[in-house]
């Protein structure tokens, strides 16, 4: 009887324990690969991503060029590695801008309420009604396409929905009795925000940041592909995609090689954010 109970109770736990690390392991493995590519990729490959060698264009993989050469004979591996830097910079910058705008605005509107809330919420609604691609095209039209513009364009298209997310989380926390308890103790507004609200927001922000990073990598590629992002010859994953597009029928492997890193990075981010979400949910339930 006792032995039986033990088997029954331990079996599901073991299953859960095995499934979690597999996903987390794959996610961390791929994530590490991406991070390493960004951090030391160009140095390991040791090739100039801008060196043109027309005689050697469309060469296949070799000891000299690990992933072959592109339409101008440039080393594809080193273009992807240095492109990874530009893409990572853009993704981090865009998410950074969105977070930096969303947290204060979400706190302001959600915690203080009143007319500030009303006005900001209307502005957010307005921005949400404009397709983000349109925002990006507008920004590119005004400032011209570049890394900075891409950061700005993506940041601008993320902040409204992120602000709304933070606001609704703050509104949820604000109605808890522990906020009242803090006020009755004499806590200032700033202290309530710091000790009660931000602590509750931290997991959400962590999760949302990882999710947005995945989106940013994809969107950078999309903008690049449309010619609205990073401009050739500067390398980024998006511009790599744009460059390979012209030769997609003759040299489909170039497009494939340009696309794989994007898929890997987004996949890694999604796996990790899923694992993170489960961890946070589990902690909340226990």
């Amino acid at each position: 009887m006792t032995a039986k109970t033990m088997v029954v109770t331990t079996a599901p736990k073991a299953a859960v324990r095995r499934r979690m690390p597999l996903r987390t392991a794959i996610g961390s493995g791929l994530g590490l690969l991406v991070v390493l590519t960004v951090a030391i990729g160009p140095w390991v490959i040791g090739k100039d991503p801008y060196a043109i060698d027309i005689a050697n264009r469309f060469a296949g993989p070799s000891a000299e060029h690990w992933l072959g050469t592109d339409e101008l004979g440039r080393d594809v591996a080193s273009r992807i590695a240095s492109g990874a830097r530009a893409t990572a910079l853009i993704a981090l910058g865009a998410v950074g801008i969105a977070t930096a705008v969303a947290i204060p605005l979400g706190l302001l509107t959600g915690f203080l309420g009143g007319w500030v809330d009303l006005v900001v919420t209307r502005v957010v609604d307005l921005f949400l009604a404009i397709p983000s691609l349109l925002v990006a095209i507008g920004v590119v039209g005004v400032f011209g396409a570049s890394v900075t513009t891409t950061v700005l364009a993506l940041g601008l298209s993320y902040w409204p929905f992120y602000t709304r997310l933070i606001r609704s989380a703050v509104v949820g926390i604000r109605s808890r009795a522990y906020i009242d308890a803090a006020r009755v103790l004499g806590a200032s507004r700033w202290r309530v925000i710091r000790t009660e609200i931000l602590t509750g927001l931290a997991p959400l922000v962590l999760l949302q940041t990882t999710v947005l990073l995945g989106f940013a990598v994809l969107d950078e590629a999309a903008l690049g592909f449309l010619g609205l992002g990073v401009q050739p010859p500067q390398a980024s994953w998006g511009s790599r995609l744009a460059e390979s597009r012209e030769f997609i029928l003759a040299q489909p492997e170039l497009a494939l090689v340009a696309g794989v890193p994007i898929v890997v990075a987004v996949f890694a981010v999604n796996l990790l954010s899923d694992a993170l979400r489960d961890r946070l949910d589990a902690r909340r339930i226990s």
Binding site: A177, Y178, A181, V184, G186, T195, T199, G200
Partner: peptide, 22 residues
């Protein structure tokens, strides 16, 4: 602030009365 020291409150719902992250 002196008033805050003088008058305190105990809440009905003990689930909600404490920040779960502290």
């Amino acid at each position: 602030m002196e008033f805050r020291r003088d008058v305190q409150m105990i809440f009905q719902n003990t689930q909600n009365a404490f920040n779960p992250r502290r």
